[in-house]
């Protein structure tokens, strides 16, 4: 995975597969602690304690298509390579919380990448799941939430031209980028 936005998409896809109705993605920048913390919190079906303990290993999966599950192992590797670590908390039938810590100043910290595209693809791809993105940075909190967007759209699907326009507009506001290009919302590398 080339950047954190791609990891986020991948980890949030796990939450969807666990039948979460809400996935909260939180990014906190704490320069005083040299810390970038990524949390992905869902209200899905969770996993057993046994599963939780081995889930960061690449050979743990509940997939039947193949024997390896890479998503969480890759995220943990990216965190460790940037001087941090990854942990998983989960309660069966209640949900799961993934925490990945990175050292902000670490030379091997992957760029954040395009959070706008990740949120767009999650929101359009899963009409039964809501996604929230919270970015805490420099004392400010910015929040994007598909629940608000779906409420304002009524029953128009997010993949319709109207839905996409509204989604891009909201994402542009939250991420501080103007959605001029149809694929817009590019973030400069390493900007959280």
């Amino acid at each position: 995975m080339q950047d954190l936005a791609h990891h986020i998409l991948d980890i949030a896809e796990n939450s969807v597969r666990a039948h979460a109705s809400l996935v909260v993605i939180r990014l906190q920048e704490r320069p005083s602690e040299d810390l970038l913390r990524l949390e992905i919190i869902d209200n899905g079906e969770g996993m057993s304690e046994e599963m939780r303990r081995q889930v960061l290993s690449p050979f743990t999966t509940s997939r039947t298509e193949r024997r390896v599950g890479l998503g969480l192992a890759l995220l943990a590797q990216a965190a460790r390579e940037a001087g941090g670590d990854c942990r998983v908390e989960s309660t069966p039938f209640h949900g799961t919380r993934i925490v990945a810590d990175f050292r902000l100043s670490h030379i091997d910290l992957k760029p954040i990448g395009d959070l706008g595209e990740t949120m767009l693809v999650l929101a359009v791809g899963h009409s039964d799941t809501d996604f929230a993105l919270e970015i805490e940075r420099g004392g400010g909190l910015r929040r994007f939430d598909t629940q608000e967007i779906r409420a304002s759209l009524g029953d128009a699907p997010l993949c319709s031209p109207t839905g996409l326009r509204v989604l891009r507009g909201h994402l542009g506001e939250v991420l501080g980028t103007r959605p001029t290009h149809p694929y817009g919302l590019k973030e400069s590398p390493n900007a959280c």
Partner: peptide, 11 residues
């Protein structure tokens, strides 16, 4: 085009 449904699924 508004009448094409797009969604994601797993592997």
């Amino acid at each position: 085009i508004a009448d094409v449904a797009v969604s994601s699924s797993g592997c």
